[in-house]
Amino acid sequence: MRLLAIRLVWRLLALLCLALGFIGIFVPGLPTVPFLLAAAWAAGRGWPALEAWLLNHPRWGTSIRNWREHGAMPRRAKWASSGMMAASALLMGFSGAPLWATLGVAGVMLVVAMWLWRRPES
């Protein structure tokens, strides 16, 4: 019974991430691939058929496999992510948010961008 409950939790997490990834296709600023990576990860723990479907998907499968095998991401994705983070920091700067919050968020995004650009390219 406990094993069934754990498998159900993994499946629900995989479905949630898959749904968020799908929404990210249409909503600017909501990433798609990170949610698909998380969906494949969760599916690998509780839903092997969904994991196989994601890994063999014609559009997203290559990105998921490259991330799993090499921690790699395409340069285009790095540029897009960096651009979105820069635009978000700029928007936050003009939003009237407290200076400490703006600088803190910008600092976190800068660290993420530095980590991102150190990843291998597919």
Rank of each mutant, 00 (worst) to 15 (best):
W117D: 04
L18Y: 05
L91S: 13
A87N: 04
P98C: 03
G44A: 14
N66H: 14
A38D: 06
F26I: 14
N66K: 05
I6N: 06
G46R: 06
W10Q: 07
W115C: 12
G21M: 02
P58Y: 05
V108C: 06
A5H: 07
L36N: 05
A39Y: 04
G83Y: 09
L90G: 11
P98E: 11
P28K: 11
S63W: 01
V9F: 09
A89V: 05
P120M: 15
V112W: 11
R59N: 02
A72D: 06
L12H: 05
R7M: 10
R118K: 15
V105G: 02
G93L: 03
L15R: 11
A40R: 04
G44P: 07
L16P: 00
W47Y: 11
W79C: 05
R2P: 03
L116V: 10
I6H: 08
L36H: 10
L15D: 06
L30N: 08
T32L: 10
A39N: 07
W53M: 08
S95P: 04
R45K: 15
L54P: 00
F94A: 14
R59P: 00
L99A: 11
L54K: 00
S122H: 12
L30W: 09
W117F: 15
A5G: 04
G24C: 09
M114A: 15
P31T: 14
L103I: 09
I23A: 15
G46V: 09
A39I: 10
W53T: 04
E69T: 10
A77R: 04
R45M: 11
G46S: 13
F35T: 05
R75L: 15
A52N: 05
G29R: 12
I6W: 09
L4Q: 14
T62K: 14
R68C: 02
M85A: 13
P48Y: 08
G46Y: 07
E121L: 13
R68T: 03
L55G: 02
P74V: 06
R7E: 12
R68G: 02
I25Q: 13
S63H: 13
L3I: 11
L103T: 05
S122G: 15
A38H: 07
V111Y: 13
G29A: 14
L20V: 14
R75T: 13
M92V: 04
N56I: 00
A80M: 14
W67R: 01
A106G: 12
A86F: 10
L99H: 06
A77L: 13
M92F: 12
A77S: 15
G96N: 07
S81R: 01
G21K: 01
